[in-house]
Design a protein around this nucleic acid. Sequence first.
RNA 1: GGUCCGUUCGUCUAGGGGUUAGGACACGUCCCUUUCACGGAUGAAACACGGGUUCGAUUCCCGUACGGACUACCA
Length: 498
Amino acid sequence: MSNQVRVRFAPSPTGALHIGGVRTALYNYLLAKKLGGKMLLRIEDTDQTRFVEGAEDYIIEALSWIGITIDEGVGVGGPHAPYRQSERKAMYMDYAMQLINSGKAYYAFDSSEELDAMRQAFESQGSAFQYNAATRGRLKNSLTISEEETQAKIAAGEPFVIRLKVPAKEEVRFKDIIRDWVHVHSSTMDDKVLMKSDGMPTYHLANVVDDHLMEISHVIRGEEWLPSAPLHVLLYRAFGWEDTMPQFAHLPLLLKPEGNGKLSKRDADSGGFPIFPLAWKNPDGSIAKGFREEGYLNDAMVNFLAFLGWNPGTEQELFSMDELVEAFTLERINKAGAKFDINKAKWFNQQYLKLRSDETLATTYLPDFELDKALKIVHLFKERVTFPQEITKEADALFVAPTTYDEAVVTSKWNDDAKKGITAFKDALPTLDNFVADEIKHVLNDELQKLGIKMGKVMQALRVATTGVGAGPDLMLSMEIIGKEAVITRLEKALAVL
RNA sequence: GGUCCGUUCGUCUAGGGGUUAGGACACGUCCCUUUCACGGAUGAAACACGGGUUCGAUUCCCGUACGGACUACCA
């Protein structure tokens, strides 16, 4: 086997990808790039009942948006194809049989109803039912019935599952890169189902077999998998693959912004932010918001997500994908879960928006304007907004004359001096041929000087007369964009109305 | 209930046997300014608790509390 780093992101196509899954994919990708390895995408669709149309395409598009390129896997192919577990179905039974033949696994014929009843019974006595060394001798499986009887049942088409025969008393331990040694006693583990009665493998079997076959070097996944990691170790051992077993790294969870528990769709809805990278159309037709559609920039999301559970140990906050690759190490990932703070995401968005060139912003968000004008508008708003669509909104608002005027500003700033100054300014405007900020300011200055009025006395009044509000970007630049005739009209109206 | 994992400002976190416990977001104040924002400065704000080990523990160990994940023929 090679020493090459090979990691995989292995989601289930059960719907839109949760933002936590995006972070998991990102960490996998960062490690792969950092160590010159390969990033695989494997689709874990062994549960046919949960398959959702379009989910796979969604996953691929989401990864692509975030900037993760897949080296091998669904959508791109590779030496270990197919990468969709449903298409690998046939081989899993062979591996399960290998375990049956070596006595590491066994057939079980207990029905779901029987097992449920068993759980009920145990629960009523205050204990938990486990299908393991302590109980399997009393259940319906190939360990309690004869070989002939077992074969007869199978031949008769009776449904069965294959379970791992977990050792009765054995200390199972493995080294997690993030959590160090984790140990569990096998007596507390279940004889997990490996092959389901529909002929599909469970996650546990499929994941171990595929990771082995695909030569995965590091399994980087969410903390929710930590409890089943010992089982996977046992599986590697049962197959005799322990010496090539991948290294494990279980990532801390993304938590609710407030209160306790892991981040859910509900939290996102009540917090007014998305939880999916891209908008997703639910089967019922409703649309779930996506970060992309809400105006979050992909590189801002990458930076934000990377810092949720990891940090470089320096005081640098802004990292491009390349810089992240450079700085990333699994060892610097935190153990504790991280609360999802959308404020921080917004801050990153603002930072990255400012980093975008005026040209990019102008052409992508103000395509209906002449480039020259669009650039001026971008310049005006770029540093004042968090989301790019706000630029569009502000731009449109710029060309709509105010219908109401901010009362607070009017009462405090709209006085005789202001009126005099604005009137003079307005009257002088028609003679101004080159209607640009500097010239406009000159005119204003000259007129006010003639009247002996200070600039500060009229600025706010002029602003409210022009835009209706008391806050905004540079007024002179705004006027330049609005245009001479429109400004004059607005001032006349304000003078008449106020 | 059982198993496993975790716990530094409100949040994301740095640090690690002796520090004024550092940074970022958010928040307050001030400066800049035609206002708001940006930017700059500044302030308030944290080692869950109890034992041990030690000259000394926020840091190491053990408990407790609290939180989380898992506990399906789902992943």
